[in-house]
Write a protein that binds this DNA or RNA. Sequence first.
RNA 1: AGGCAAUUAGCUCAGUGGUAGAGCAUCACCUUGACACGGUGGGGGUCAGCAGUUCAACUCUGCUAUUGCCUACCA
Length: 938
Amino acid sequence: MELEKAYNPTAAETTHYKTWEANNCFAPEINENPDAEAFSIVIPPPNVTGSLHIGHALQHTLMDVLTRWKRMRGYRTLFLVGVDHAGISTQLMVTRQLKKEEHKTPRDIGREAFTQRVWTWKNKFGSTITNQIRREGLSVDWTRERFTMDESLSKAVREVFVRLYDEGKIYRGKRIVNWCPNDKTVLSDLEVQDVSKKDGKLFYLQYPVKDSDEKITVATTRPETMLGDSAVAVNSEDERYKDLIGKTILLPLTDREIPIIADEYVDAEFGTGAVKITPAHDPNDYEVGLRHDLPQIEIMDASAKMNENAGADFQGLDRYAAREKVVEKFEELGLLEKVDDYEIVLPVCERCKTVIEPLLSEQWFLKMDEMRDLALDLMREEGAPHFFPQVPHEKVYTTWLENLRDWTISRQLWWGHQIPAWYDEAGNTFVARTKEAAVKEAGTENLTQDADVLDTWFSSALWSFSTLGWTGETTETEDLKTFHPTDVLVTGRDIIFLWVSRMVMTALKFTGEKPFNDVIIHGTVLDKNGQRMSKTKNNGIDPLDVFDKYGVDATRMMLADSATGVDFAWRDEKVESFRNFANKIWNATRFCLLNSDGAQVDYSYLNPKAEASEIVKTLGAELSELDEEDEEFLDKIKPELAKDNPKENLSLADKWIISQLNKTALNVNKSLEKYDFHDAVQTLYHFFWDDFCDWYIELVKDEITSDVPNVARDAARSRIITIIEQSLRLLHPFMPFLTEELWQKLPGVSSDLHNAAYRNAPQTIMLADFPNGDASLIDDDATRQMQLVIELISKVRNIRAEMNIKPGDKPAIHIAANVDAQKIFTDNQAQILKLARATELKLSETLSVPKASAKAVLTGGAEIAIPLEGLIDFQKETERLENQINKLSTEGERLQNQLANQSFVEKAPVEKVEILRARLAEIEMQTKTLKQNLEALK
RNA sequence: AGGCAAUUAGCUCAGUGGUAGAGCAUCACCUUGACACGGUGGGGGUCAGCAGUUCAACUCUGCUAUUGCCUACCA
């Protein structure tokens, strides 16, 4: 079988996903083990109007890595996918479309027609994001796909609303709220952004005091609101104004008289120490107004235009036009004291960036006290949910909860869950699960439903359990029992408050369970200059472009590698390096497949005991008296597994790579348990590239590529193919497409390699058993020996490079070493000669070579020399040796100083001291040899 | 204003109380029968600064500087 010379991701990406989905591999039902442990993740539902951005790609990758990993380990795995109806965004999008296509507004066509139109839009375009999720390779269960406005989820929403209302937690009232004059809806505090404006102004207005020549000056950034002033407040301790408290002001531009009041809210140090109070258009003033029972004068309408209360001169003006006019009039009246430049912070609508107008409005609110306490208790008592990284998120989350205020849950939109409250003609309110129930309660059919819908986050808050079948009426389903609480939530910092905390609160309240055990908060992907990506800056990275350019798997690897919880700047080169890695895997496999006649995947090539235990299982009790630790064990139970059997007969390189493979598997599992994606990626990358490709393939290359079929060659071929097979499994959660593509091509793969839970499923690597790693196969002896061989080869290569020995020139290598080291070198002579490009190894106890030789010292004291008769550049060799001596002496000096320090020797742990002593001895020995070599050159 | 975090090689980032790491970039050599999306060998860092704790600090503590994030805003 021959593969293309380079990996082309497109083919793999277009075929395998379809097969997996068609075979229902993503659904938990694929797992046939009734006792399997469950693992579940719910996706943070992306907006139905949305398309994939790089932040999604990051969080989706992490979730899919965890899901695929757990699935391969035999867990009954559910990765639940769904989409959010995204009230404001969607309504805006369809409104725009309506205007463009028919020049109509939603009001023109009416509520019913409009919402119908949104549904049509949703059905037609709502799958953009879900198709992109397929492109990413996410192993989500499409049979359980949810939408926040599905009937079942909507039922849950109504149920929760009614229950909270009945408990008095939900109430309706006129409060000062964040109003977006553009979207014409209220927003919660969390949907308001602060934008700093450097060129703001602070206006100083003079208000005449009644029956006096005195004036009192107030400072304001919003002069137009003075038309709605109902008091001026000062601090009662402020000597300047003490006498004025209780007096009356003739409010300019109006015919109103307003009092001067004292309130602790006023900071005497700031501005003039006197504050105009506009209860209907400022949240702080609103509070002051309540304390002093001041009238709330509303001077603006829902578009932030001045209304009749602002007076005839101003009515109909936009708030900014009104501001100019007010300032003009004050100037005319000689009451404008001064205008200062002033940096102000403006609250804007998160979505449309319009400046928020605080105004009085009748809205629905949710008291958070009880649910807040449930969440805080959970953190106090169980430390749940557990945040990764814990610092600083746990504290941020807890502090926010502690200061939580009522949640404004109504929105003046048509797209969303309409509030289940009805009013009769007398204005009585009936909150009920259905209109029928409301009618029954009201005793009349003549009811009007509340026009508002609920904040989109209200339904999102129920996501962990509403998606699993909870409707309030139904509170127990098989899915809830199996998958709730979910295991881990993966999400961004920005929605810890908007979503994470609210899910915790509602899940505790309505299911009595936490929604998830762990929360992974990933970092933000910044642009290449370290700036936040934004539409206005147009500096976004489109993941689809990245997929096209480098492949999905390379992108996933890059993202997982970057996932440390910290923000990071985007770097194309990083993806490129993982594209190269994908190609490396492709080509390593390609090479093995080119030499795979007579080979097949068989784990017993990596662990003869595995085969032995299989045999024990099949042959049963008759073997029970045999000891598995017995060296002759295999020979006794099966003749063909006798001592010269190639499965048992492992070279140093074999033992070493098997050891490294098992270390890798153990470490990858350990890292993923801790959600340490970066570490897992690094471990896999370096195992495959450095250990496997750079060393193992090169070490066994001659044997593998032999033209002569024989048992040993075929065993070597099977062994390397099996190592690849194991590596592909380890890589699969990160690189699903490439690994499936290659795995399917390996000789001898079948569903027999699946985890026991999936034996009957069609063969796929995604159901293969994830390697746990076997600590008993970690071979420290082989590791040490292999390190020596590697060091030898590297030192020779160093000499070759530094002394400009041409690749075609093959010198002899003289080695002086102890008996043990000599044996290691002899055993691996063929590989050493090949990789060091040498003709022969001359081993002895002491070195005896011509003066014209390049030399080096190995760990443990072995010396090597390469005779360079006629080729040597003595100057260069001298420099080379001096360079090495210098490096050693720097380290040696430091160690010597440390060991000369009495308190170190006394107080440091004995082992530490011993390690340093041994290292120093090693350095001294090597230095001595190198110095002798240097002398010999003279 | 308060809180939190970051500051490590040219760049982007890992990392640990006991000899500084990766990828990319860079230099030299190599068209060696998987891969030039490759191979081999180099070079490059007083781990922001100052003080302290410790036998030992890049790692712990404090302060300073710079940067970023979050929360709350004084009109």
